[in-house]
Design a protein around this nucleic acid. Sequence first.
DNA 1: AAGAATAAAAATGTAGATATTTTTAAATAA
DNA 2: TTATTTAAAAATATCTACATTTTTATTCTT
Lengths: 227, 227
Amino acid sequence: MSSDSTPQSKANQATIAYKLLKQDIINGVHQPGDKLLMSHLKESYDIGAGPMREALSQLVADRLVTAISQRGFRVAEMSLEELTDIYDARAHLEAMITELAIERGDEDWEATVLGEAHKLARVNEINTPDEMLEVWDSRHKAFHTAIAQGCGSAKLLELRASLQDQAERYRHLWLKKTVFSQSALEEKRREHADMVDALLTRDTVKAKQLMYEHLISPIPIIKQLML
Amino acid sequence: MSSDSTPQSKANQATIAYKLLKQDIINGVHQPGDKLLMSHLKESYDIGAGPMREALSQLVADRLVTAISQRGFRVAEMSLEELTDIYDARAHLEAMITELAIERGDEDWEATVLGEAHKLARVNEINTPDEMLEVWDSRHKAFHTAIAQGCGSAKLLELRASLQDQAERYRHLWLKKTVFSQSALEEKRREHADMVDALLTRDTVKAKQLMYEHLISPIPIIKQLML
DNA sequence: AAGAATAAAAATGTAGATATTTTTAAATAA
DNA sequence: TTATTTAAAAATATCTACATTTTTATTCTT
């Protein structure tokens, strides 16, 4: 039966360990700078050293882990500098992708964006604050992804995904410690509405600016949390 | 002394194999779509299966190799679509980075760019056509890297490097089959001079446009070679 | 020819051997 | 004593050789 939660039926051990460890690093189970001891990892993820190294190599490529030959692996450090760099790079990249999406997006793209925006705006109808945040986050991501898809470039979308992955640890910091006020939510909703408007009227300059500002706005908030 | 040919004194087997295999893929020793048989790889690179898998995983992250669980590894396919996507994405990204470099670059940046441009322009003094092409390529890369450094974002430079890596196979196709005419070389020289001029006068719009056009210009030529 | 059974090839994983680094303790010198 | 070097031990990372599982090719059967 293919009714398991993991769509790919027969992932190998390295892939399984990669996903678990990545999630654990993003969620802060392993803290920045922590030594990733092979003996400990082998036990935690119930796996041999070979596949474990394979998983670690991939995380090094993702920049979530650092390696020094003969001295093993560590969780990559986090810093205010990196936070700023990731978010700023992401904002610039996403603004550029938005410009291309406006230029290249067809009617299907418009429809999808509109649909995701609608779903996102309706999130406040769910009440449990904990559940709300999770659903809001997932729909928020879907909304932005829908916009980005319009650019039509697989490579640019890959770069975007890479930065998004690297931002996750910082973003997680924010999501776990923030309680959304109704007014903050309302402000976000307006930002998104303005963005949809700029996209559909094909106002490139405005859309780029809104996107850039939307994406760098969490920087000062996360900076606070890191001090 | 740090002047040995192998900069990192004690790289592990996986790292060594990664570099060798990557180079072999870029240089077409292993062709797109080729099966990378473990038994063959082990022999070629004189290494065990564990470290070899580690190297392959990293190349999967680089998009130079594809993997299917339980069915091994293959050299990633090449296609006209991917060629266009990589080069277009690269051109857009580099144009954006150029804009930031103009905005953020200081006097040291200007000086470095000017210096690299000078070295590049003087390449034609070398005569062996074979040697010439190699030196020209390396200085050309150095010139563009010098420009990009001005953006000051480590993350954007990483994204740039990633696309450049992926473009290498296509670029290699071009470099190996092209003999530079004196006029073609002269045209490039003029393009670079114009670019330096736009950069130093901080003419953002012009610099972006020149950069974009400079980077997409090889597309039709490489397309020809791929047919 | 289509399908099942079998054999061969290949990928993946495990356990233990080897090499390197880090820690600890002892010895030496200031 | 205090600091520094040296030597040994422990911990750790890495690699190899072999075992297991899965896929692919071949043969056999109907």
